[in-house]
């Protein structure tokens, strides 16, 4: 034998799944939402997305270089972060703000905590919140669909969430004039951030990820389910109010794409259930009782922080584990 044999620990076969493949699946799943945002908000939406993705990739590259770490662009996670951040922004946002958001997400939230898999909060979500607090006006400048977002004074529209915040006791008929129809909500013909408006595209993307087994359905189901139950109660049983609550705001985007972020959600099933219900509860509480119209971002960030504790509480017992009997030794 001329060449030496490879010696490595078992197993000697590996599944075909790779980190890059998983990230690529997430990108594919987000494409319908991206197309819809381009359809409603024009090319400005695509430009802002390109800026966000570009600056995320660039800052990841530069950051790894400066920190003298290996180049991790190949795993495509920076692309995903940039893309998700962009979909969380209003289409009229100044481009430099988008770029700043990406830099915060990658450099501060992700790389400073050790890079992929190590961040304790969702980078895109955190960047969005920082932008929201820093530039409240620009971050709440919701351009109406088809109004074009190039001009800073394009027609704006209140988001359904802002309208719903004024609703008392689940009676949507009082504000019916300022709300789009439920079909409109499903297709996304209303104001909002670029990627969150079209619930249909998001659900399609989410289903794709579930079918491809990239994400487990537990978190989205528990998240959306909890919001549904809470809103049904808060709306006095009004199905219409509940439907608006589910389709409005960032719930679908958050539940399928951000709450399921691997690094910042629990590893095991029980933990995922607690995490999903927690997200749903906090979202609902903020929406109903808070002064903010929307609570998805905050709920996910808050639950992200709790993940280590949830995991400690839900670590599964190893196979065949027998509980210690009281007053005696373990069997």
């Amino acid at each position: 034998m001329s060449k030496k044999l490879t010696v490595s620990p078992s197993p000697h076969v590996r599944s075909k799944e790779t980190t890059t493949g998983i990230m690529l699946d997430v990108i594919i799943a987000l494409i319908p939402a991206l197309i819809m945002s381009a359809y409603y908000f024009g090319l400005r939406a695509l430009l802002l997305t390109a800026v966000c993705v570009g600056s995320a990739v660039l800052s990841e590259y530069v950051c790894r270089r400066v920190m003298k770490r290996n180049n991790t662009l190949g795993d495509l996670s920076a692309v995903v972060t940039g893309l998700i951040l962009a979909l969380n922004l209003p289409s009229s946002l100044p481009l430099w703000m988008g770029a700043l958001g990406s830099i915060i997400a990658i450099v501060v939230v992700k790389q400073m905590f050790g890079g992929i898999g190590q961040n304790f909060v969702n980078p895109a979500m955190t960047a969005r919140i920082i932008l929201m607090v820093s530039f409240p006006t620009a971050m709440a400048h919701w351009v109406a669909p088809f109004a074009g977002s190039w001009s800073p004074d394009a027609v704006t529209a209140a988001t359904p969430m802002a309208v719903l915040a004024g609703v008392q006791g689940g009676d949507v008929s009082a504000v019916a004039d300022s709300l789009p129809s439920l079909t409109g909500m499903l297709f996304g013909v209303h104001g909002g951030s670029m990627g969150e408006v079209c619930s249909l595209a998001l659900i399609a993307g989410g289903l794709y990820l579930i079918i491809r087994k990239v994400i487990s359905p537990i978190i989205p189901l528990c998240f959306i389910g909890t919001v549904a139950v809470f809103m049904l109660i808060a709306g006095g049983g009004s199905l219409e109010f509940t439907a608006y609550q589910l389709l409005g705001g960032g719930l679908m985007l958050g539940a399928f794409f951000m709450a399921t972020d691997y690094s910042t959600s629990p590893l095991n099933k029980k933990g995922k259930i607690i995490f999903g219900i927690g997200c749903g509860l906090i979202t609902s509480i903020i929406r109903i009782f808070g002064s903010l119209p929307e609570g998805v971002s905050f709920s996910i960030i808050l639950m992200n922080i709790l993940v280590p504790h949830i995991e400690n509480l839900t670590t599964p017992k190893p196979f065949g584990y027998v509980k210690e009997k009281k007053g005696g030794k373990a069997e």
Binding site: S8, T72, T315, P318, F319
Partner: peptide, 29 residues
């Protein structure tokens, strides 16, 4: 070797190891 070796990257905490462990362990931890 292509069939046998996969590029080693950082753990992304995807939880697949936890899902597949027949002994209910958490390999990543």
């Amino acid at each position: 070797r292509k069939d046998l070796i996969k590029t080693e990257r950082e753990c992304i905490r995807c939880g697949r190891c936890v899902d597949v462990c027949p002994m209910s362990l958490m390999p990543t931890l």
